[in-house]
Amino acid sequence: MSEDITTPETTPSTQATVTPPATRNSARLMRSGVGRNLGLVVALVVLCIVGVITAGDTFATGANVLTILRLAAVIGVVSVGMTFVITGGGIDLSVGAMVALASVWATTLATQQLAADFHWIFMVTTALVVGAACGLVNGLLVAYGKIVPFIATLAMLAAARGLAEIISDRKTQIITVNSFVDFFGGSLLGVPVLVWIFLLVAAAGWVVLNRTTFGRRTFAVGGNAEAARLAGIKVQRHTVALYVLAGLCCGIAAVMLMARTTTGSSTHGQLYELDAIAAVVIGGTLLSGGRGTIVGTVIGVLIFTTLNNVFTLNNLSISAQSVAKGAIIVVAVLLQQRLARSSNT
């Protein structure tokens, strides 16, 4: 838990500059986050090469890259929050339902009226507060109610989506506040605002996880909660904070989805929990906690969205894609285990 955690994940470009002078160094490199992410980067590059070969004229265009990034943005923000929870030794099955509830609550007639009269910031705030509040409930149930995270968040999954259905009467709520759609649907310096938000959330997540006390405590709590408690960390309070963070990310994702669809709906965010967990796990975060990487998660999300894009461009069915997705998860985890074992011996 020592070197593994504190070594910051490096981006592929900086990896290239670190030329290992000796095998001992390269072994250490493998043990650090770099080695784990290297496999992922290779997988992503291979996917891109397949994309260029099979659909070069459309795959390697700026517009297509932006399409991939826009798709990755929403699930990516959810996955960043999920990374924190899983690194801290928990799991959150309620992310999709929280996205739905936040999107519905932020698009009720009352909220939209407020936004129309004053500023769209009211809709954003509503979504963030609803997400964070759901996360707070999750956190309290897990930390103080001593309910297993799997069960506590399973309960939230059912309850939040049900509440979203009650509030919206299972109807799609259309956003009529144009300023909201214009802002979040627009671009800044040629890059969609949604992608900027994803980048900001990922960067903030990386800094918090790798460069702050909060991040170090997250690793400690996830690695061994009892040891963390003895070391003076307020484990329960920290756990609550992690779930609030995940909820907050869901609130942000809800805002992004609202901008993308100009609607709020109780059907938004279906199965996002599985997509997010898959991305986090193939990214190299340990499902048992104590080890986590934001860079890995981001690449994990990109792998799945690129896969999706390549399949769509090549006219292949979603069913074949699901098979490929399953295979990728298994291969990624097997490779990780192999790397972990070889670096231990």
């Binding site: 459309t58 297509n64 399409t67 826009r70 798709l71 993308r260 669809t261 938004h268 965010g269 979603i318």
Partner: peptide, 19 residues
């Protein structure tokens, strides 16, 4: 690009068609 109940994904499919 058949088969999705995730509007986010379906939107990206249409974006891909545009590209």
């Amino acid at each position: 690009a058949e088969g999705t109940n995730d509007v986010n994904l379906q939107i990206s499919q249409v974006e891909t068609f545009i590209n």
